[in-house]
Design a protein around this nucleic acid. Structure first.
Length: 247
DNA sequence: GTCCCGTTGT
DNA sequence: ACAACTGGAC
């Protein structure tokens, strides 16, 4: 384990924690809610996921047998706020039916499987890719797998620690090879990344002026050096400079 | 108009 | 590499 890189990753963690505080993830009352939320939040704002989960909860449908028995078209209506509602309805039902058929509807027993086996089973389902699988494993099964999402890629490529188009496994290895396999740490770290990603390190107009990591960041530093009084951190000089710095 | 805790099939 | 899936909040 590269102690220099470990120090850098922990410094970033400490700065994020100081800025945003503990996040207490996953937001949800049950393991089933975590699993459903992990699928429903794909490419959708969490506020929309909450609407869908509330629609199910208020009708007493937050159980594996109830979800499995629901007509797909009716489930899709409840999932409408989460975009791709037809796809997500079919995929959620495939998931809950698998737990019902292969594990007698016992979600705890499904989640208690060996981590590698669980991951393969999840990845074998349509609609569950690496991020969703790892979210379920970290936040519902409570195993120390680092979750990589679009925010992680964006933030850590802007920090200059990964290539902009590095694949999922490569980014995951940056964290897992340099940090202790500590479930509470991975839980909080990913939550803090999401916090920074949605409030500060935005895709088009990053708010570098109020970023707790600005002193560690290639883009943020350039924006500041080149007269980046620009509150949104976007000016022609910044764009040009960051392009020049790419490999 | 911007942004969103992606995955699949071409 | 890229389109399809295809809603709501600020």
């Amino acid at each position: 384990m590269d102690t220099g890189m470990r120090e850098r990753l922990m410094t970033i963690y400490d700065l994020l924690y100081a800025a945003f505080g503990p996040q207490h993830w996953w937001p949800g009352d049950s393991e089933l809610e975590i699993v459903l939320g992990a699928v429903l939040t794909q490419n959708v704002a969490w506020s929309n996921v909450e609407k869908a989960l509330f629609a199910l909860k208020s009708r007493g449908l937050l159980s594996i047998p109830a979800l499995a028995a629901l007509p797909a078209s009716q489930l899709a209506e409840f999932l409408r706020p989460t975009r791709y509602y037809n796809q997500k309805a079919a995929r959620l039902q495939a998931l809950v039916k698998m737990v019902q058929d292969a594990f007698g509807g016992d979600l705890d027993r499904f989640l208690a499987q060996d981590t590698a086996v669980l991951r393969c089973t999840l990845l074998g389902l349509k609609g569950i890719g690496p991020e969703t699988a790892d979210s379920i494993i970290l936040y519902a099964a409570r195993r120390p797998l680092f979750v990589v999402d679009a925010y992680t890629r964006r933030i850590f490529s802007r920090l200059g620690l990964v290539e902009p188009h590095a694949d999922y496994h490569h980014v995951q290895e940056l964290f897992m090879a340099n940090l202790p396999a500590d479930e509470p740490l991975f839980n909080e770290y990913h939550a803090l990344i999401v916090c920074l990603g949605k409030a500060v390190c935005l895709a088009r107009n990053p708010r570098c002026a109020c970023c707790p990591l600005v002193n560690l960041c290639v883009q943020g530093r350039e924006g500041r050096l080149e007269g980046g009084a620009s509150p949104d951190g976007r000016n022609p000089a910044t764009k040009h400079a960051s392009r020049r710095n790419r490999r």
